[in-house]
Each structure stands twice: as C-alpha cells, then as structure tokens.
Design a protein around this nucleic acid. Structure first.
Length: 791
DNA sequence: TAATTCGCTAGACCGA
DNA sequence: TCGGTCTAGCGAA
C-alpha cells in the first residue's frame, strides 16, 4: 500500500465509460493521477406501484438519437420517500444519466440525487476526503483498493501576482503584462521585459517570454495561490496569451473561467487554484475578520500587522517605462505575492478541515458559501445513515418560503443611561444546543408518538424523542468534538505551543455549527424546514425570557438582553452570587445547553433613540482594565467618516473612564473648531459605502450613488460590490449633489456645516446627552456647572 | 450564486 | 419649507 494526499477528483470519458480520476501528491512521486473504473454514475428513481414491471421497463429503456443507449442496471433499494419505492439506476456514462434524468418525469418516475456531480458521488460513497491522505494499491494508473487515511495535509504551494500597464481603460487583457512575481516561501522569481536591469529582477525579451515563465513556474506546484486570480490575474494571462497566439496551459489544459453569479472562478484541472481574496471574503462574511477594504495593503496591516506600501498604477507605469523607482515597483510586486502566500499559510488549514468535513476539493471549499458547506455535510451524512437526500426546491417554492419569514430572536429594550457593575452572561452556541436538546430535525417533526408530546416547542410543533434526528446527530457530534479540540488547543497553548491546525479544526466546526440554523430557514435549502427554524427561535425566546425572570428572582436587575446574552446589574451582589445563579440556571437546563459567564464590566452606557426609547444593539462597556467594548455605534460602522468615529470613541472614553463629560464637551468643541477652520485632512472625512446594485437600479439616489454616477461619467470603472469613498464638498444644494468620490476632491474642499451637523454631532450627542448635555452646549460655550456630574 | 431575523439611522422622495 | 414615509446600508446576534 502507498500513501498520498488527495487534491482533486474528476472524471474522463472513454468509448464505453465515464471513469473517475483522482489527482494526488506525495513526496516520492510528486503529482499524479489515479483512475477508478469500478465506479458508475447513478441516480434514484421513485415509483409507487407495479414495481416489478417498472424495473423491467427501465432495464430495457433505450435513449439517444444517433447512437442508442441503455441504462446499465436497475436495482431495488431499501430507501424510502413518502412510501414510494426507490430504484437505483446506474449508467455507463455521466452524459447518459443527464439524458435519462430529463425523461424520467415523463416516464412516470420521480427522481432523487440526480444532481449530485459524479466526482462528488464518488468521494461520498468511498469516504475519501480532499485535504486528507489516502492509502492505495494500484496497478499502472488503475486503483485496486483505496481508503481514507487521516494525516496532516501539506503540499508545495506557489503564490503569483502580475502587474500590468495601466491604460485609460481598465479591463481584462487590454494592456501589456509588465511584471510577474512567483514566490513559494523559499524561492522567488520576479520577471519583467523592456525595462532597466536591476538586482533581483529577471529581464526577458518580451511579454510572450514572460507568460511562458509564468506557465513554467506555476506548473511546478500542486497548489497555486493568487489574490483575485479568479477575476484578474489568471483570466488576464489567458487573454494576453491568446492575443499573442501562444499557449498558456496549467496541467496540460487551457484554463477555464466558471461564472459564479456576478464574478468568475478559475478552477484548475487536478492542481488547486486558491484565490486568497475569496478566502478573505469568506472570513469577512463569517465575521472571522473585520477589515474595511479587502485590498492587500489593508489585509497585510490588519491581519499580519505589517505595513505595506501601495504603488499606484501611474507610479507603476512610470517605474517600468523610465526605470525610476523600479526597485520599489519590483518590491511591491513581490510583496503582493508574499502576502498572498501568507494568507494561505494562515488560513488554508481552516479550509482543509472544511474540505474534509464536506468532501469538497480545496478550490471548491474556498469558494463555497456556508449554506453549501452545511448541505454538503448533510449529503455526506445522509449516505452514511442510508437515507435519501431531499431534492432542491423549485423556484416557485423558493419564492413562497422567502415571502414567509420566520419569527426570530427576542431583544429587550435596555435601560438607558450610565450603569456600573455589569455582568454579561450568554448561552454557549444557543441555536445548535437547542436543536440538539430538543431533537429538532426535518424528519422528527410531528411524529405520532404519545410520549413525544412533552417535547413540544413554544410555537406548537412536536419533535420526536424516540429516534435521533439527522441535524441533532450531526450537530451533537460536531459540538462535542469542538469542545474537545478547544480544550486540547488551550492545554497546548498553556504549555507553550500554538497549534494552528487544532485551532483551525475547531474553527471549521464553529462555522458550520453556527450556519445550521440559518440553513434550516434558507429558502433554497434541500433540508429547509419552517417548523424547525421557527421552533428553534421560539425555544430561544423562551429560554432567554426564563433567564431574565430567574435573574430578577435572584436579586439582579436585567439591564439588557439580545438573543442569547443577558446583561445583569450586580447591585450589591458579588461574583460568587453570579456563579451561584449560573449553577442554578444550568441545573435546570437540558444537557447540551449552558449559560456561561462572559465578562464583567465596571461601567457601561446605553443611549436613547432619536424618537425616544432606549436603543437596542448599541452600547459601550468598559472592563476592569479600562478596555472599551463599543457595539453597534457609529464607531464600528464603515459608513461614517473617521473624524466622527474617532471623536465618538474619545467621548465614550472620557465619559466611561474618567466620568468627565465637560472634558468630552471641550474635546468636541475643539473638533468643531478645526472643521470650521478647514483644517481637517480629507482622509478623515471620507465616508465608505458599498454600491450594492447597478446605478440605474436605484429608486432613491443617495450620496454614494450620486458620487458614483459623476465618477462613471468621467470614465471610472465602478461595478456592483465596489466600495465607494466619498466626501461631502462645498458645491451643490442637496447632500447628494455635494457628494464626490474622494479621488476628485481637493484638500480643504469639504462642507464643514455638513460634517458638524450630520457627522460629529449625531455621533456624540446621544452619548453626552445621557449626562445632561444638549447640542447647544457643544456648539456654543460651556456647560453650567452641576448638570454634568453623575454618581 | 445567495445562511437567518432584529434593529438603527440617514437621506431621498413626495405631497401639502 | 416642512413633516411623514420609504429606500438603503450596515451592524448584532
């Protein structure tokens, strides 16, 4: 038996058959293919009467126009769907399956699992996992035996980045590639043409030779990493090669772009292309990182703490053309590739674990949504359980689901004002633990057992208690596995080793765990269940209400509550009392649910809304070490200018730390003075907002859309999803009229009135108002003594 | 091609 | 010019 790491699964057709091909890597053999000709594509057909004859009929069924084909085999299965009989229908080729699945409906059959890709079918049925090892026995390329083998995944990886001439118009392949960098952590190669020769830069005759070097370098590695290679670098090189009339092939094939909604994905054949930008986007979506703009400069600084200088397109042009500043340009190209490689070094372990969990290739899992991850996991587990995978919903069904939202969490209106001695308690993994504890799963809904009636959700659905459901089983396993890994990680860390793989494992579980509830309420889900999603939140509301009542009974005041957390005022109570309270609550909760102590805060502020009443989801806390935790306020929002955000933070700090509203007021007056005098630099005043749709699709033209339209008229390329940085300038009547993209605004050209009235004051007044101050106190002179104190 | 609901706020839009 | 309503974006959980 030999060992190798699994990278890709695909198939190829010969005359008679579709044959599975696996792409593998080990140190001895490098990269190689193995074939498995024993596995056939199949789907399930369902029927409810006359089974014998129907099997016969399908066995003899012929299809195809020029050549006539037959199904390979039909067998009876033990699977069930709504009391229908399920037949397994196998084919010689994937194309046959595709042909017959179109005709099954007309022939009077239902169909299941007809849309699971052949290669994925193979991985699920053989329990092989990309991102993991296999042991195998093979003769020539033919697999005789193959099995999963758990082991640490590690293959040679190269990062690559190109620089291009920046012309007037920006688009794929429009201008020459001027430079390219490939780095693998040990070796790097920076290549250019038609420019000055300097140290560390290899010069070739022309762009064609440059492309050939890129091709040569990339083909040496099983994993290729880019930053936005899906939409830029790879399509660009492909296009330039085509224009030059030369081949550009990875693993012997021309690269292909796949449409993925608004953008593209370049998935390679065998080798894995990881687009680190997609990785960052996923981390941003799941809240694992929070970075305003996902360019490499920001990522480098926010993730790795390394400042990275940006070379603008015109600087790049100039350096390449004249040789002046060329070293800086070369360094920039190289650093881009290095940061890209670093992203993958740090975060690929997470996706390796997700790949294993879901039996997806790395290039698929790094581009997958959380719903796809949950679904792939469920498909895999269904096979293990021997149950049928539900079909995807039809579009009209999806519409009905989306138009019927499910009631969500409970948020208690907080007590506005300043508070002291706050303890925050929260439920660990609230939704997953409810799903596990109450056995919530689509197939346990409303069983007919009398005994299960006690497991009735507050919104009236009964969940079977006799047989463990698919969701509770999977989530239960993942939850306990995660706790184990987390403990192991903590233990190792205490001993001095930061085991990144252990950390990635528990993190992958967390992401999938937390997405399971959202998946149940997601209209396009195969396992959508209104009853399950609704029961989960109904129970969540009940538990948090119960906790509030118990806290009051125990002598605490409840300051605020949101979904799974409970803020209590200690009054004269001690930490010990909180622990006793937790013990009491946890004693009454079902097994896998737990209320935990989350933190203690010396002071906190909750504010009133403009229209009155206390604002939910907005507060600031300060712990015993005087660290601030600011939630929901303008300070954490990207669509407010830096100056307003920083001023707000300073005010919160002065109020919470020192309890000195007068100092805060003085500080704000200073900021207003600077604004009035035109002294504030424009980078403090830019507001960042995303263009969520095409300009013509807006009903209401807000400032960012107005600014974008003006920029588009000047030839700037702005697509859906672009982040717009704009400034409210002096010129114009409405705010939208005054809005201009930052790049077109001169220093000093800002509407100070707007920034005072619409940015600074709204950001600080809600906080300082809790201390008795008014807007006038900030705009004009000082505050009368006596009102600004609090106890 | 897309996980969920709850909540706040700004600024456009619209009619008086 | 005013005030109410609607559109839009972003964050909390």
């Amino acid at each position: 038996m030999q060992k190798a790491q699994l990278l890709d699964a695909t198939y190829t057709d010969n005359e008679e058959r579709s044959i599975i091909q696996l792409y593998l890597y080990n140190k001895e053999k490098g990269e190689f293919w193995l074939k498995d000709n024993k596995f056939r594509p199949y789907l399930y057909a369902s029927c409810n009467d006359d089974v014998e004859n129907k099997i016969k009929y399908l066995k003899g069924y012929t299809f195809g126009s020029e050549d006539v084909f037959k199904v390979e085999n039909v067998t009876l299965t033990k699977l069930k769907a709504n009391d229908e009989t399920i037949l397994k229908v196998t084919f010689d080729k994937v194309s046959h399956l595709i042909q017959v699945r179109k005709e099954l409906g007309d022939l009077g059959f239902g169909k299941y699992e007809h849309d699971i890709p052949f290669w994925k079918r193979y991985l699920i049925d053989t329990d092989l996992e990309p991102g993991n090892w296999v042991t195998y026995e093979a003769k020539k390329e033919q697999i005789i035996k193959i099995e999963k083998l758990d082991g640490e995944f590690s293959v040679p990886t190269v990062a690559f980045d190109i620089e291009t001439w920046a012309g007037k118009k920006f688009g794929i392949g429009l201008e020459e590639i001027t430079m390219s960098a490939t780095v693998d952590g040990k070796r790097s190669r920076i290549v250019s043409h038609n420019t000055k020769k300097i140290r560390g830069l290899e010069i070739v005759d022309n762009e064609e030779q440059l492309i050939k070097i890129i091709e040569e370098e990339l083909n040496k590695y099983p994993i290729i990493v880019t930053y936005n290679g899906d939409n830029f670098d790879l399509p660009y090189v492909k296009d330039r090669a085509k224009k030059a009339g030369i081949d550009f092939e990875i693993n012997g094939r021309r690269i292909k772009s796949k449409r993925k909604g608004m953008d593209n994905a370049v998935e390679l054949y065998g080798k894995q292309h990881i687009d680190a930008y997609q990785v960052m986007r996923f981390l941003q979506r799941t809240g694992s990182v929070n970075i305003v703009k996902l360019d490499l400069e920001n990522v480098s600084e926010k993730v790795f703490g390394i400042k990275k200088e940006k070379v603008t397109p015109s600087e790049g042009n100039n350096a390449w053309k004249t040789g002046v500043g060329l070293a800086r340009f070369v360094d920039y190209n190289k650093k881009d590739a290095e940061v890209t490689l670093q992203i993958v070094k740090d975060f690929l372990p997470l996706f390796i674990e997700i790949s294993k969990l879901t039996s997806q290739t790395l290039q698929t899992s790094t581009r997958a949504s959380t719903s796809m991850m949950v679904e792939d996991l469920l498909v895999k587990e269904s096979f293990k359980r021997g149950v049928l995978v539900p079909n995807k919903p039809k579009e009209n069904e999806v519409r009905v689901r989306i138009n019927n939202p499910i009631k969500g969490a409970f948020v208690k209106e907080p007590l506005a004002g300043l508070h002291e001695n706050i303890s925050v308690l929260d439920f660990a993994s609230l939704y997953p633990s409810i799903i596990i504890s109450h056995n919530i799963s689509p197939e346990t809904v409303n069983c007919s057992h009398k005994e299960c009636e006690q497991n009735k959700s507050p919104d009236g659905t009964i969940f079977c208690t006799k047989k463990k459901g698919l969701f509770p089983e999977i989530l239960g396993k993942m939850l306990s596995q995660r706790l184990k890994l987390k403990a192991e990680y903590k233990k190792k860390k205490k001993e001095g080793t930061d085991d990144k793989i252990l950390f990635a494992k528990q993190w992958a579980l967390k992401i999938v765990l937390n997405s399971a509830y959202g998946y149940l309420g997601y209209g396009r889900a195969r396992w959508y269940s209104r009853e399950c999603a609704s029961a989960t939140t109904a129970w969540a509301r009940q538990y948090i209400h119960q906790t509030n009542d118990q806290a009051k009974e125990s002598g605490f005041d409840v300051l605020y509550t949101d979904t799974d957390s409970c803020f209590i005022l200690m009054n004269d109570k001690k930490q010990k009392d909180v622990e006793n309270f937790l013990d009491k609550v946890n004693g009454e909760l079902p097994g896998s649910m737990e209320l935990e102590f989350d933190g203690y805060y010396k002071r906190g502020i909750f504010v009133t809304k403009k229209e009155g009443g206390a604002a939910k989801k907005r507060y600031a806390l300060m712990d015993e070490k005087e660290n601030l935790k600011i939630v929901g306020f303008e300070y954490v929002r990207r669509d407010w200018c830096n100056l307003a955000k920083e001023t707000q933070r300073k005010v919160i700090e002065l109020v919470l730390k020192d309890g000195e509203p007068e100092k805060a007021a003085t500080y704000v007056r200073g900021v207003i003075k600077d604004l009035k005098e035109g002294k504030v630099p424009k980078k403090e005043l830019t507001i960042i907002t995303m263009m969520k749709r095409k300009p013509e699709d807006y009903d209401s033209i807000g400032p960012h859309v107005a600014a974008a339209k003006k920029a588009i008229a000047k030839g700037v390329d702005i697509g859906v999803g672009s982040l717009l940085s704009f400034i409210i300038t002096k010129r114009g009547n409405t705010i939208s009229e005054k809005a201009l993209l930052e790049e077109f605004v001169e220093e000093g050209n800002y509407d100070s009135n707007y920034y005072i009235k619409n940015q600074i004051l709204p950001a600080v007044i809600k906080i300082i108002r809790e201390l008795g101050y008014t807007e006038e106190d900030l705009i004009q002179g000082g505050k009368q003594a006596g009102l600004g104190t609090w106890s």
